[in-house]
């Protein structure tokens, strides 16, 4: 009997496919998310748009919040640790959190090294903007990927860019011979063996969700259309006018992302979505996606 194998860690993310993972800050929100059909919740102290507004250093949430959320729902509970913060990750693992997001939404603890995620029994999800970043995170042991997008903005443009880029780069390497692949590995800064595996299967070896800017049911469906395996919604739900209704609509739009009549119906009278931010209005230091490498 073996725990923490690649199959067990990646398999957990496979079970989340086609689903929506929602950010929550307390038990009450976690219950709303579960009731709406979320496949998991991400327990946080603040949603990304509030982290953005608050400024300062963003850290792992108070363990009490994770405890409260884990006690409130039966679906899996995820939590965020700072990039490279070995101890925050170990603390979350010790608490029994089901998945850790090594996240650029929090202030990085290490500007040079990401966590060596292979050493952990608990699986990790990491953000990526391109195939090089995706392959590096996989080599470090990430069992699930997501686009970085631009968290807390309610603006889908960056998530779209990242999803399209990764998928286009996967398609590109599928047709390469090994000599070309080695040069591509060098150009991408990607481990050759990971690229070989991707070429063999014609897709990433782990699931890739959309994250960072999903604000409406149509946004969620758009990301599925572009090939996302599922969707993370951060600020989008609990910063909207009617979270319960919004959460349900996003879940349905993700399941039936090509049923446009249904999405029209779901989008009717939803109330205001979260207020969005234009990406170009962000100062370079406010761009969360540029954290990590």
């Amino acid at each position: 009997m073996k725990t923490g194998t690649d199959r067990v860690k990646r398999g957990m993310a496979e079970m989340q496919k086609g689903g929506v993972i929602m950010d929550v800050v307390n038990a009450e929100q976690a219950k709303i998310a579960e009731e709406a059909g979320a496949v998991a919740v991400m327990a946080l102290e603040r949603v990304p748009s509030d982290i953005r507004a608050a400024g300062g250093v963003a850290r792992m949430a108070d363990p009490r919040i994770m405890e409260e959320v884990m006690g409130a729902v039966t679906i899996p509970v995820m939590a965020k640790a700072r990039i490279g913060h070995i101890v925050e990750a170990r603390v979350l693992e010790a608490m029994g959190v089901d998945y850790i997001d090594e996240s650029e939404v929090l202030t990085p603890a290490d500007e040079e090294y990401h966590l060596n995620k292979r050493e952990f029994t608990v699986p990790f999800v990491c953000g990526c903007r391109d195939l090089g970043e995706a392959a590096r995170r996989i080599a470090e042991g990430a069992s699930m990927l997501r686009t970085k997008g631009e968290p807390g903005t309610g603006n889908i443009v960056e998530a779209v860019r990242h999803m399209r880029k990764v998928n286009a780069q996967v398609r590109k390497i599928v047709g390469m011979d090994e000599a070309e692949l080695m040069t591509e590995a060098k150009l991408l800064g990607a481990p050759f063996e990971v690229l070989l595996e991707i070429r063999k299967h014609g897709r990433l070896p782990v699931v890739n969700f959309a994250a960072g800017g999903v604000a409406t049911p149509a946004d969620a469906a758009l990301m599925m259309e572009l090939g996302a395996d599922g969707v993370f919604v951060g600020s989008g739900i609990f910063k909207s006018e009617n979270p319960a209704k919004f959460a349900k609509a996003i879940v349905e739009a993700t399941t039936h992302y090509q049923d446009y009549e249904l999405i029209a119906h779901l989008s009717k009278d939803l109330g205001a979505a979260m207020k969005g931010l234009e990406i170009s209005s962000l100062a370079p230091e406010e761009r969360m996606q540029d954290r990590g490498w």
Binding site: M1, K2, G96, Y99, V122
Partner: peptide, 22 residues
């Protein structure tokens, strides 16, 4: 919870003498 998730080889009656179950 997830950290206790595992794989194990087991026999399945009429199907396999050893089957890797995740």
């Amino acid at each position: 919870r997830q950290r206790e998730s595992f794989e194990a080889d087991l026999p399945i009656d009429g199907v396999a003498e050893e089957f890797t179950a995740v």
